[in-house]
């Protein structure tokens, strides 16, 4: 199946029963697929007048107990920021898909990974961080989508699934999971009418008046740090240099590790699957053989390098091979990594 369509089917199978969205390339297949598929399962689809409206519709539907989702790409994701901040403030679980494209402004509809800082550092005003999952294949898009709502509900917090144009547009075989359904009245806190109750349910975004709100929010993020770090490590045990890449770039890096090893260059790879919380645990046992780390990402400024530096506590140099609008080539990755190992690269990022 095509990545976006497989992901859209997973949205339905994950029990989502509200989708509001606005067209933007390269994620239109999600909106189009759900437009006919959602009514088949008795759910609600609305093509909203804007991403602003869409995210606030999601807030309403999720507050009323439905599994609710919206999707977009870079420019539209920027417009979600307001609503995301309110979802965090109101402790409202929802899922947001960002099929990343390239660039600032209108950018380009082709693949990109330059929403990294937006999804890990942005997400509106306040202390808003979202749990962010970044698949690197069509199958993993489906698998992580099936985990997204349970995670959102575990923390009463929005979750982002960060795909990109390459994964969204590629066609791969995929195993679809069994459909899940949930009862819209399963949670006590959702608005559903106050029949038989003296008090009513109130979903407000002024929880910060609570005496212990600071520790409440910190504890929530702390629990995510402890329980939700996900990553894949490949041949890091004896690596001279460890590549760090997520999403489509990670696929290239897997190939680069294999090619390098054939040449006798010992590369390894850490592939973050959760990028918030960042999988710092993956960097705890870096071997003595490792001289440096190198992020491979389709951003211009090496947006993820900062997280890697934090993860290694600045004990190793962290380089970036940032290809911007182009998908990195595996042989180029090997060449750049070899140059770092041989001391030919001075600048870590720029």
């Amino acid at each position: 199946m095509k990545g976006n369509e497989a992901l859209a089917e997973a949205v339905i199978r994950s029990g989502c029963r509200f989708y509001g969205g606005y067209p933007i390339t390269p994620q239109n297949e999600i909106l189009e697929y759900i437009s006919w598929r959602m009514p088949e399962v008795g759910g609600a689809f609305v093509q909203a007048e804007s991403e602003l409206a869409a995210i606030n519709m999601v807030l309403g539907a999720a507050s009323a107990g439905a599994r609710a989702l919206t999707s977009s790409s870079g420019p539209g994701y920027s417009l979600f920021q307001e609503g995301i901040s309110y979802l965090v403030a109101g402790d409202i679980p929802a899922v947001i898909i960002d099929v990343a494209r390239f660039g600032s402004g209108i950018g380009e509809i082709s693949q990109g990974q330059c929403d990294y800082k937006l999804v890990t550092r942005g997400n509106g005003h306040g202390d808003s961080h979202l749990l962010v999952l970044a698949p690197c294949s069509v199958q993993e898009s489906v698998d992580l989508m099936m985990q997204a709502f349970p995670l959102a509900e575990k923390y009463r917090h929005p979750v982002i699934l960060l795909s990109d144009a390459a994964i969204g547009q590629m066609v791969e075989p995929v195993n679809l999971p069994e459909p899940q359904t949930v009862d819209i009245n399963r949670d006590a806190w959702t608005v559903k009418g106050c029949k038989g109750q003296d008090e009513s349910k109130k979903i407000t975004n002024v929880f910060y008046y609570m005496d212990d709100y600071n520790s409440y929010l910190r504890d929530k993020y702390q629990k995510m740090q402890e329980e939700e770090q996900r990553w894949e490590s490949i041949m890091t045990e004896d690596a001279q240099l460890i590549l760090v890449a997520y999403g489509i770039s990670a696929r290239v890096c897997k190939e680069a590790v294999r090619m390098a090893r054939e040449k006798g260059v010992r590369l390894g790879l850490i592939r973050p699957i959760s990028i918030f919380p960042y999988p710092g645990k993956a960097f705890k046992n870096i071997p003595d053989s490792c001289k440096a780390l190198m992020t491979v990402e389709m951003s211009i400024t090496g947006q993820m390098a900062e997280d890697v530096r934090l993860a290694v506590n600045c004990r190793y140099p962290v380089y970036t091979y940032g290809t911007g609008i182009k998908v990195p080539g595996s042989s180029d990755v090997v060449r750049y990594a070899s140059d770092i190992i041989e001391g030919k690269i001075d600048k870590e990022v720029f």
Partner: peptide, 27 residues
């Protein structure tokens, strides 16, 4: 929200209408 006991959502500024639409579509 402070002076009544109906099930209530306090939405973002200017967004009660789409928020209400989201509620209505699932209920």
């Amino acid at each position: 929200i402070d002076v009544w006991r109906y099930d209530t959502i306090e939405a973002a500024h200017g967004r009660p209408v789409p928020t209400a639409v989201g509620v209505k579509m699932v209920r």
